[in-house]
Design a protein around this nucleic acid. Sequence first.
DNA 1: ATATATTATATTGCATGCAATATGTCAATA
DNA 2: TATTGACATATTGCATGCAATATAATATAT
Lengths: 235, 235
Amino acid sequence: MVPISSQSDIAYRQIKEMIFHLELLPGTRVPELQIAAKLSISRTPIHDALRRLAAEGLVVIGPHRGATVTCFSEAEIREIGAIRMFQDILAAQLAAYYGSASDFARLDSLADACEEAAARGDVYGRIRLDIEFHMAISEISGNSHLVRQQYEIYQQIHLIHISQYKDIRHSLMQIHHHRPLIAAIRSGDLSGIRTLICQHVKDFYHIDPYLIRCCLSDQGPLPPEGAAIGPDQGA
Amino acid sequence: MVPISSQSDIAYRQIKEMIFHLELLPGTRVPELQIAAKLSISRTPIHDALRRLAAEGLVVIGPHRGATVTCFSEAEIREIGAIRMFQDILAAQLAAYYGSASDFARLDSLADACEEAAARGDVYGRIRLDIEFHMAISEISGNSHLVRQQYEIYQQIHLIHISQYKDIRHSLMQIHHHRPLIAAIRSGDLSGIRTLICQHVKDFYHIDPYLIRCCLSDQGPLPPEGAAIGPDQGA
DNA sequence: ATATATTATATTGCATGCAATATGTCAATA
DNA sequence: TATTGACATATTGCATGCAATATAATATAT
């Protein structure tokens, strides 16, 4: 009665695992035939798996050039961060509305696990559990399409994190925001949710201060400080 | 020098066109062999095209059951509407920051075209141009990943609209919000942007009033009216 | 007549072969 | 030496055949 997985599904999971285990580094090519040989199956399911990974942004496919593990630029990381911030806010605010006590308890235990991983110096575990924590919020939101989108973007974020985990940037991951965020969700503190999520992501992704203002701004048309409009005002 | 399109690309575009022309109605199956015969190519590129359309949410694929044109439920439409609202707000606020005068002029002309289509009773044109208008805002935002996400969700929205264009719901499409939205973007009125986008989408997608409050709320933890927290507070 | 079991058909999943294209190597030339 | 060209290799794109599965039709039993 177990849902039997196709060769294509197996290939999809295996290749993804290779990427996340850094056996396939960003920028390296992923030839169909080599993977096929390694998994002892034919090229066809590998082909499908790679297209699927491409749709999720983990590899890039060019015509007659095949698949390459995605290598995100600094600009792309900022773009993804901005999207993540807004999505997280939507998810958390919905979770505050629809979440049950047991849902929030699950968040607590995930925050526990994440802190434990951090305490024992398990970097990969911390990355994985941080993502699991945020995906749990997404699932509590009850919006299945949002879950799908967040699953996709968090896979990209996963790749970004593991490929620069020894970078300075990585120390900017602020897992100590988890507890207050849970509290804000529990109490339905919309403004607190926005503030905490902004704090949680702004450093790592170098979020533009303007976008922070967009999220937090509790005032009308007039901006609080100096330049309200962007740099390119003229034609 | 024209980028030669593969058979798979052609199939992808052709099938998508069939869906948007309602030659393939939501819920109907899309057998590889039939499409292959119609396009005079083999099953393989059709197979790839269908997986690509599945990744974009236009068809649903089941194991050994093949592809079926997606039929969105009422609940899904609400979910998609919530996501769209937040994405649109992000896009418009970025566009307000990064947009140039010529960018805004393009928005004006698209709003023109959309109104003209509405005036002449061209329902399909109005749907298409409304989407083009919103995608233009997305492009002005300068966030390529956001563009990709919005392209995907607007394709789903396109399918939703055309498949119920004679429904009551469709009269809820409020294109008269375009002009004020452009004005708000031009002047960098963040609060105005949020308000207008909420107004623009809330009726069609039956957005929960709670979510509207999340977007517009300019106050702290305490909610303005009655129930602050969701329905499921207990364990 | 309805429900169930069985068979037949249609459709997809996967493997493999061939053609087309890109990539890397090496030699020839400026 | 650097650059360009031709050639060889590796890799993908597509077509087709076979096996596995789901769907539909039919027959059977209650």
